[in-house]
């Protein structure tokens, strides 16, 4: 638990040269990681004719020897006018928000019940859901498709959303979070004051669980945003496709057009990137919550 400053003797033996070498290495690795994204962004703003003239920005007379004036929004215009990506963007926003919020509510309510109540069947439920953690999702593709066919839910958002509303790991994340963040004494006090059970969950437990709620909404939103196999199997009408599926289709019809495809990719990634930058802390806490306690 000691902080580095408590031990100047050891810390100061680190030579400056090693520190510079480390930064040089880390910086070049960071550059390599960023290159594909930089390429995507620059390609998205280049018109069809000059896509392969330079690797990144076009050469020209402008500032830093770059032809800024040759950059264009044409790809984005084509994307929304010809390729009609606007609908897919709205579909993705809708599916991801609804999917994330509903899954979070199901898991929070269930996890809270497992953590703070004793009831018949609790062990059975815990073991069954725990067992579900080891099932690989592809195994359920065929039987779920068959089930949705018989329920008449193929090509509907209900058929796409419903099967994903009970992620097993979510239940355990919220059970753990409740044990740590929602004291039994507080719930007892609320009951003595005559607070109803569902009200206690909504007005006492949920606010205390806020960090986990935030993290879980974020990771499920991201999972929905990037989900491909689900909508690819369940949906058939192109107007219902979310971005991931719409863009894969786009690749088929605009195979040669790098600019259009990169513009589409940028439009798909940007919302998630911005969300992440704003809520970085919650995000990483959510992603590692399953692995490391505390």
């Amino acid at each position: 638990m000691s902080r580095p400053s408590d031990h100047p003797r050891v810390e100061h033996r680190r030579p400056i040269a090693a520190s510079i070498a480390l930064h040089a290495l880390l910086l070049s690795l960071a550059a390599v990681v960023m290159i594909p994204l930089a390429w995507m962004v620059t390609t998205a703003f280049k018109p069809l004719g000059i896509q392969f003239d330079t690797m990144f920005l076009p050469e020209g007379e402008g500032l830093l020897g770059i032809g800024w004036s040759r950059l264009t929004l044409e790809n984005f215009r084509n994307l929304f006018e010809q390729a009609r990506l606007g609908i897919a963007l709205l579909n993705s926003v809708f599916l991801s928000s609804v999917g994330a919020v509903l899954a979070t509510l199901c898991c929070a309510a269930g996890g809270y019940a497992l953590a703070r109540f004793d009831f018949r069947g609790k062990r059975l439920i815990t073991v069954a859901v725990l067992g579900a953690l080891v099932i690989p999702p592809p195994l359920l593709l065929a039987p779920t498709y068959e089930l949705l066919y018989h329920l008449n839910l193929l090509d509907t958002y209900a058929g796409l959303l419903l099967p994903a509303l009970a992620p097993a790991f979510g239940l355990f994340l919220f059970r753990q979070a409740t044990i740590q963040a929602v004291p039994s004494e507080l719930l007892e006090a609320a009951r003595i004051d005559g607070c109803g059970e569902l009200r206690a969950f909504a007005t006492i437990a949920l606010p205390l669980l806020r960090p986990m709620v935030g993290a879980f909404v974020l990771i499920t939103f991201l999972a929905w945003w990037n989900n491909f196999i689900g909508p690819q199997v369940v949906l058939q009408t192109p107007e219902k496709y979310p971005l991931a599926v719409a863009i894969a289709q786009l690749k088929g019809s605009y195979y040669e057009d790098y600019g259009l495809q990169m513009a589409a990719t940028l439009v798909s990634i940007a919302p998630v990137m911005i969300l992440f930058l704003l809520l970085q802390r919650d995000f990483i806490a959510g992603l590692t919550a399953g692995a490391v306690k505390g």
């Binding site: 199901c106 309510a109 269930g110 809270y112 019940a113 497992l114 109540f117 009831f119 009970a166």
Partner: peptide
């Protein structure tokens, strides 16, 4: 109560 809370999941 617990069954009600767990029902959707």
């Amino acid at each position: 109560t617990p069954y009600l809370l767990l029902a959707p999941f």
